[in-house]
Design a protein around this nucleic acid. Structure first.
Length: 568
DNA sequence: GCCGTTTTCGGCCCGACTGTTTTCAGTCG
């Protein structure tokens, strides 16, 4: 079983335990362990001592081991004997938690969302503690439930977030406002949006937000908090007075696990943390904190950038003053993987070059598709030679930027490259990737890519797992092995910045960089606008603790050319 | 369940809002 599935299983165990009314901290233990497993790139079955993962002790280590080796752990078997598995889904309905789901099961025999949806009106309202409103809300949730929830890609979430943020900021009662939550942490996909604002007239701002034109539904509405739905997305706005804005921003940037760990730590040094500030333990007298870095300072920690706030080791690193100097957008000197209308891109060599001059890039590598990828108008060897000449000519025209000609060469089914080595040798840079025969099985796919890595001209493997978020799972491939081979062959791994890809994914990327593998952060842009998506590649790299020293396209032009000249 | 700058046992985050309540439990983030 893979790490993502193991994490889901641990999550299920936690929810089943909640339904059983198990001790809160036991449940929390499984939840935290689930996050730890999800965040690690190395497959669990390869990890010698699972207890090295945060929040994994002897008991859960054994549970993970069972799951990794495709056995059902006893704790899960026992739980499933007692509690119908369909109830887990019932707890995912908005407004329905474990207590409610448990009562529905015990008192009405409900064992699934479908059962609930078919319930007659009035049945629910007759239960003690339930009224007409509760019934209406729960039934509606059950009847409109869609198990395949679609999470927003980063670019859509960012666009919506900015739109809502502009509204909040433009209100006269707003002093300051920011996007918080998972969007600020730049998670790879976004479920809901969190906005925070500072105001002296919180209620006025809250009311205005609840009545804004983009609001489809008001879920909750108080003076400090408004919870709305907008285009099917849940949006939370929280408001405090300006003095406490740092505390609020910090509190709602999360993640949940990071906040809990931080508050536990604070208690140990005699402090409570909330969105209103810091208080001496137990006094409830919160002293507001205006900025986030002050929050960390008061806790004796280095400032932790939002992208790292997941409780995956950042707190102890910050305590020791050992946080990485994360790569920044401004560190990038070029893009090594963009397309043009020579294959399936929309931009021309010239328009793409001009778009790359804009952010101050020192170099740009055009990598159009190779011959066998006919659907993408892949270049025959003859056309590739012509394009090489065209790029050389364009390079003369733009002294501001070095234009180079590469290719995104298909890795054929047997692991050979889609052009002869003689031709690859003519190119400035070779990106290799898989676009066909995705379902050949893990072993064959791994061998296929490893063979490509051993080609002396292949510099980087583009979108190494082939996933398309919300649409296509990654193909089966042994990423740990790819990381080892990348290191051995001095081949880079690409972090593809396209919001629907973000491939290689963060947990793997962190493993790769830890193993000393260098990476390329590219856009795979097919038009000028696409170049701008590099900010998402950068944020994913930051989430993976990447420093600029690991990134090939952070090299200044002279050093980059040196790297090209020296071969692999 | 996990974990250790008080602890290997006894601790273990914090608050807003809602609905159905006469004082609070449940849900959510």
């Amino acid at each position: 079983m893979e790490n993502a599935q193991i994490a889901r299983a641990l999550e299920t165990i936690a929810t089943l335990m909640e339904l059983k009314d198990e001790t809160y901290y036991r449940v929390l233990g499984y939840r935290r362990a689930a996050e730890s497993v999800a965040a690690v790139g190395r497959p669990a079955y390869e990890i010698q001592d699972l207890r090295e993962l945060p929040h994994v002790g002897g008991t859960i280590a054994q549970v993970i081991k069972d799951l990794a080796e495709d056995r059902t752990p006893k704790v899960l078997t026992d739980l499933l004997e007692e509690i119908p598995s369909g109830l887990v889904e019932v707890t995912r309905l908005p407004g329905v938690g474990p207590r409610t789901a448990g009562r529905l099961w015990r008192e009405l025999g409900i064992t699934s969302v479908e059962d609930l949806a078919e319930l007659e009106e009035g049945t629910l309202a007759s239960l003690k503690g339930f009224g007409r409103k509760s019934e209406e809300r729960i039934l509606r949730a059950a009847r409109t439930y869609n198990s395949r929830e679609r999470r927003m890609l980063l670019d859509e979430a960012a666009a919506l977030g900015e739109h809502l943020l502009r509204f909040v900021r433009s209100h006269p009662a707003c002093v300051e406002a920011e996007i918080a939550g998972s969007l600020r942490r730049q998670k790879e996909t976004i479920g809901d949006l969190d906005l925070v604002a500072a105001s002296r007239q919180g209620k006025a701002l809250a009311d205005a937000f609840a009545e804004a034109p983009f609001v489809d539904e008001v879920v909750a509405h108080g003076p400090r908090k408004v919870f709305i739905k907008c285009r099917g997305v849940e949006v939370d706005l929280r408001i405090v007075r300006p003095e406490a804005f740092g505390s609020l921003l910090h509190h709602f940037t999360g993640g949940q696990a990071h906040n809990i760990a931080l508050r536990e730590r604070a208690v140990k040094i005699g402090l409570n943390i909330s969105e209103y500030g810091l208080a001496k333990l137990g006094t409830g007298e919160y002293e507001p904190v205006g900025t986030e870095d002050k929050v960390y300072e008061r806790l004796g920690l280095q400032y932790i950038p939002p992208e790292l706030r997941e409780d995956t080791g950042e707190i102890s690193a910050a305590q020791k003053g050992e946080l990485p100097a994360l790569v920044e957008l401004g560190d990038l000197r070029g893009d090594l993987h963009v397309h043009t209308n020579w294959s399936d891109g929309k931009g021309t060599i010239e328009t793409m070059a001009e778009a790359a001059i804009e952010p101050g890039y020192e170099y740009l590598v055009f990598c159009d598709h190779s011959q066998s990828l006919k659907v993408a108008n892949g270049l025959s060897p003859g056309r590739l030679v012509k394009k090489l000449e065209a790029v050389r000519a364009a390079d003369e025209k733009y002294p501001e930027i070095r234009l180079l000609c590469g290719s995104e060469v298909d890795i054929l089914k047997d692991g050979t490259m889609d052009y002869e080595d003689d031709l690859l040798a003519e190119l400035d840079f070779v990106v290799a990737s898989v676009h066909t025969s995705f379902r050949m099985g893990e072993e064959a796919m791994t061998e296929r890519i490893v063979r490509a890595m051993n080609n002396p001209y292949v510099r980087t493997i583009a979108h190494p797992t082939g996933r398309i978020l919300n649409r296509r799972d990654p193909y089966e491939v042994d990423v740990s092995r790819l990381i080892l081979e990348a290191k051995a062959t001095n081949t880079a791994l690409e972090l593809n910045s396209a919001p629907e890809r973000l491939d290689l994914a963060v947990p793997y990327m962190r493993e790769a960089v830890d193993a000393g593998v260098r990476i390329t952060i590219d856009t795979d842009a097919h038009d000028e606008v696409g170049l701008g998506f590099v900010k998402f590649g950068i944020s994913q790299a930051r989430r993976a603790w990447v420093e600029k020293e690991s990134v090939i396209n952070c090299l200044p032009l002279a050093e980059f050319e040196e790297y090209l000249k020296s071969g692999k």
